[in-house]
């Protein structure tokens, strides 16, 4: 009834079940405003998690996501506020920087033969350090200069027809990701390399090029998440997004993509991230005393993890 491991039925089912339980705990859960709040606050993580989903499908991992997110936002803000660069090229440059970081990671993994865990742990620290350099460890906001200088890309966080543009961007990214996985050769390449790299090489796939491309996409999407959160909160701190790497990975696993890679869906990963958004939302709605929130999160994650159970062997 709930589908095989990796099936999208599982995260859909769990998310629906979570929403039902949440609405019983707090009737305020079932309101358009609340759904809007969950989707908006989760949008940056969803976008970044799409990149993480591709990486995990390859059987790799990206721990540096949150640092690239913060540095991407800081870079775009630094260009517009301190150097008067127009918004569009500034955002483009930030995305290119994210992609470039990802490409460097990919090359270190493929040519350097360094495990992705180690390389991305180093980007977790190194790119965090880069984020600190933009404004001497300080945050950046339009008021960081005299006279103030707006970001210029604040339009990313407005409304279109009553729907936040952040949500629309996240939906577009998820849709593009899912189309790529399901309807283009990219999907089968990524899954083949993820499930059996030797077999992939033997049929002529360039596994190294695929890995570099996937890490580039992951970096680009993390930077996009950073630009989005900067537009939303009208400022960006060097350590914005702390904890997002783990949350994105958790969302991807909850969404049915196993650590071993080789299968899964982008929509599933997005739904997994929304499960985490629902957990955070419920904590506020039921007024859970602050000291108990970590324990609550742990319990719900275990429950959520039950639906993401794989076959016999679990790592």
């Amino acid at each position: 009834m709930f589908g095989r491991p990796g099936s999208m039925r599982r995260p859909v089912g769990f998310l629906l079940a979570s929403c039902i339980v949440a609405s019983l705990l707090s009737p305020a859960f079932l309101s358009v405003r609340n759904f809007g709040a969950i989707l908006t606050s989760s949008s940056f993580l969803v976008v970044a998690a799409v990149g993480e989903a591709f990486v995990i499908m390859l059987g790799m991992i990206d721990l540096g996501l949150e640092s690239v997110l913060a540095a991407g936002g800081m870079f775009a803000a630094w260009l517009t506020v301190f150097h008067g660069v127009p918004a569009a090229p500034a955002v483009l440059l930030a995305l290119c920087a994210g992609a470039g970081t990802g490409a460097a990671v990919g090359l270190l993994v493929t040519r350097g033969r360094i495990p992705s865990f180690i390389v991305t742990l180093s980007t977790y620290w190194g790119i965090r350090g880069v984020a600190l350099l933009f404004n001497g460890g300080n945050y950046i906001s339009p008021d960081s200069t005299t006279p103030p200088h707006p970001f210029g890309f604040g339009g990313l966080a407005t409304n279109v027809g009553g729907v936040s543009t952040l949500i629309l961007i996240a939906v577009a990214v998820v849709a593009l990701g899912q189309i790529a996985i399901s309807f283009t050769p990219i999907g089968s390449w990524v899954k083949t390399v993820g499930s059996n790299e030797n077999a992939a090489r033997s049929v002529g796939l360039s596994a190294d090029a695929i890995k570099v491309a996937v890490f580039s996409v992951s970096g680009l999407l993390a930077a996009l998440g950073g630009v989005m959160v900067t537009a939303w909160q009208h400022s960006i701190y060097p350590l914005t997004g702390q904890g997002d790497s783990l949350e994105a990975i958790a969302g991807v696993i909850l969404g049915g993509i196993p650590f071993t890679g080789g299968r899964g869906s982008i929509v599933g990963a997005a739904l997994g991230v929304l499960v985490i958004g629902v957990i955070n939302d419920v904590i506020v709605l039921i007024g859970l005393p602050a000291r108990y929130q970590y324990i609550f999160v742990a319990c719900v994650l275990i429950l959520a993890g039950l639906q993401a159970r794989g076959g016999r062997w679990v790592k």
Partner: peptide, 12 residues
């Protein structure tokens, strides 16, 4: 803070 307040304001 923005996330938490958004959720709370959706309630009341």
């Amino acid at each position: 803070a923005q996330s938490i307040m958004s959720t709370e304001l959706a309630k009341t």
